[in-house]
C-alpha cells in the first residue's frame, strides 16, 4: 500500500497479459494474511491455550481451597464458640 502511493508506475508493470504487479501483490497480501491467521490460530491453540488452561485450573483450585479454608475457619470458630 505504501508502494501504491510511492510508485504507481512500478505497480502497473504487466506480468502476465493484463495482470499487473499491483494485482499480484494484492493477491499475495490476501494469501499471506490468510496463512498468517491459520498459523496464529494453530500456534495459539498449541502453545498459549494449554498454558492458559493450566493457570486457570490452578487459579480455580486456589479459589476452591480458599473457600474450603474459610469454611473450615468458620466451622472452627463455631466449634470453639461452643
Amino acid at each position: 500500500m505504501a508502494l501504491a502511493g510511492a510508485a504507481p508506475g512500478l505497480l502497473a508493470t504487466e506480468i502476465v497479459g493484463r495482470v499487473n504487479l499491483g494485482l499480484l501483490l494484492c493477491a499475495a497480501l490476501g494469501v499471506v494474511s490468510l496463512y498468517t491467521s491459520v498459523r496464529y490460530d494453530r500456534r495459539c491453540s498449541h502453545e498459549v491455550d494449554p498454558e492458559a488452561r493450566r493457570i486457570r485450573t490452578r487459579h480455580e483450585e486456589q479459589a476452591a481451597a480458599a473457600a474450603t479454608a474459610a469454611q473450615e475457619r468458620a466451622a472452627g470458630r463455631r466449634w470453639s464458640g461452643w
Binding site: M1, A4, G22, L23, C26, L29, G30, S33, T36, S37
Partner: peptide
C-alpha cells in the same frame, strides 16, 4: 477498489 477489497478482508485479522 481492489485494494479496498483486500483491506476489507484484512480487517478481520
Amino acid at each position: 477498489g481492489i485494494m479496498l477489497d483486500v483491506s476489507t478482508a484484512l480487517a478481520l485479522s
